[in-house]
Design a protein around this nucleic acid. Structure first.
Length: 259
DNA sequence: AATCCACGCAACCGCCGAATT
DNA sequence: AAATTCGGCGGTTGCGTGGAT
């Protein structure tokens, strides 16, 4: 119900994109902008599925894409963010301007996961096969915070932070938001920080996730938020979610703890 | 020189939530 | 309010390439 039939089974081109297809897609999007992926192939004259067009554009053709040569800073950030967020590739990619979720996912699966295994052994909780921190449905409720409490999960929606937003412990509320959609919803942290040249924002990090046992047990990032087993209340206080809603000092502490 | 194998990457698939009708 | 469509995400697959045998 509510699901459109798969468009990829009706004689459409599949597999690797040709240079001509790329040209058509790029010129069309340059003229008409992104969006309307479902009807784009028809309008652009491409014999491709809309999803395929979107993927090609986002992962390869979009301006500003960095390809290859992931720097040490970026790699370190990926490891840290993966420790915090798990396999939320789009969320991680949102913190790495110019990088795509697909690239980061591939990089993790091919390079970093092996390194993690080597350096942490087979039991490493950051292995990609590790369970996601918060199973969305009923089975995972045991780990989820109780409903109706101030620690209900914050929605995780990847938001790009391509604009430089420098937020330090002092006065970050006055700093500009990176994008209109960053205008705070009440359940979002809505804060950015910067590591070197890499901008971060903490929007959408699930509190429940950060409290999940495996994210901080032996991983590479979670423990920076506090010792494993940190009480939810402590984290709420740390994040300023349970108090007066200001969250000012807590986030400052958080940043310091993380960095 | 030929074959095999492992690796990296691009692309596909299925599902889900948001938006729209 | 329910049904439908759209956009996006994460997992997986398959192909091309380079190194080893």
């Amino acid at each position: 119900m509510g699901r459109k039939p798969c468009c990829a089974k009706e004689g459409l081109n599949r597999g690797a994109w040709t240079a001509m297809e790329d040209d058509i897609l790029v010129s069309y999007i340059n003229d008409h902008g992104e969006g309307k992926w479902g009807s784009l192939p028809k309008r652009a004259g491409l014999n491709r599925c809309g999803k395929s067009c979107r993927l090609r554009w986002l992962n390869y053709l979009r301006p500003g894409i960095k390809r290859g040569n992931i720097s040490n800073d970026e790699e370190e950030l990926i490891v840290r963010l993966h420790g915090l967020l798990g396999n939320r590739w789009s969320l991680i990619a949102g913190r790495l301007p110019g990088r795509t979720d697909n690239e980061i996912k591939n990089y993790w699966n091919t390079t970093l996961s092996k390194r993690m295994l080597q350096s942490h052994g087979a039991g490493c909780s950051n292995h990609p096969q590790a369970k996601p921190p918060l199973p969305p449905q009923a089975g995972g409720e045991a780990q989820a915070p109780p409903e109706g409490t101030s620690s209900s999960p914050i929605r995780t929606k990847a938001l790009r932070c391509t604009n430089t937003v420098l937020a330090v412990a002092e006065g970050f509320h006055e700093q500009g938001r990176a994008a209109p959609e960053h205008v705070a919803e009440e359940d979002q942290l809505g804060d950015c920080l910067s590591i070197g040249s890499i901008d971060l924002d903490l929007e959408g990090i699930e509190l429940g996730f950060m409290m999940s046992p495996w994210s901080g047990a032996d991983g590479l990032g979670g423990q920076h938020f506090g010792a494993p087993g940190t009480e939810a209340d402590d984290l709420e206080e740390l994040l300023g979610l349970g108090g007066d809603g200001d969250g000012h000092g807590g986030l400052g502490d958080l940043e310091l703890a993380w960095l």
